[in-house]
Computed example of a mutant assay.
Amino acid sequence: MRQTMYGTVARLRVKPGMESALIQELQAFDVLGVPGAVAEYLYRMDTNPHEYYMVVLFQDGATYRANAGSPEQDARYQRIRALLERDPEWHDGEIVFGSRVPSV
């Protein structure tokens, strides 16, 4: 059975003035060495500076779910949730295509 990367796309509405704190929380995740974590991206929308989309990639669904179900991730989520106006809108799924633009 072929293993494919797995992840989530989340829509976040950040409280005014909390953008830097959100970025600090996400940067802290990067240095933890979470098993299976591959990449993380945060987009700020041009149409609304308080609306963000976060993309998180894991090596497979099993490592994604193990992280999502861990008490450590719940604690990180609670810290992030405190910076948001409302609960994130989550869209989890298997990554079926990806590419890298070659350097020119």
Score class of each variant (00 low, 15 high):
E25G: 10
E25H: 06
E25V: 12
E25L: 06
L26S: 08
L26A: 09
Q27V: 12
A28D: 15
A28F: 12
F29H: 14
D30L: 15
D30K: 15
V31Y: 14
V31I: 11
V31W: 12
G33A: 09
G33T: 07
G33L: 10
G33M: 09
V34H: 02
V34I: 11
P35M: 03
P35I: 04
P35V: 03
G36A: 06
G36W: 01
A37T: 01
A37H: 03
V38Q: 06
V38I: 14
A39S: 14
E40P: 03
Y41M: 07
Y41S: 08
Y41I: 11
Y43S: 09
Y43E: 09
M45P: 09
M45N: 08
M45D: 11
M45F: 04
D46V: 06
T47K: 06
T47I: 05
T47D: 11
T47P: 08
N48F: 04
N48P: 15
P49G: 03
H50M: 04
H50P: 01
H50I: 02
E51M: 00
E51F: 00
E51I: 00
Y52S: 06
Y52E: 07
Y52H: 04
Y52N: 06
Y52F: 07
Y52C: 04
Y52A: 05
Y53E: 03
Y53L: 02
Y53R: 00
M54E: 08
M54W: 03
V56K: 02
V56F: 05
L57Q: 10
L57F: 10
L57A: 10
F58T: 01
Q59V: 02
Q59M: 06
Q59R: 15
Q59K: 15
D60M: 10
D60Q: 12
G61A: 04
T63L: 10
R65F: 00
R65P: 00
A66F: 01
A66P: 02
A66C: 03
N67D: 05
N67I: 01
A68C: 08
A68H: 01
G69D: 14
S70C: 10
P71W: 02
E72P: 14
E72T: 14
E72W: 07
E72R: 15
Q73Y: 13
Q73S: 13
Q73P: 09
A75T: 13
A75Q: 13
A75K: 12
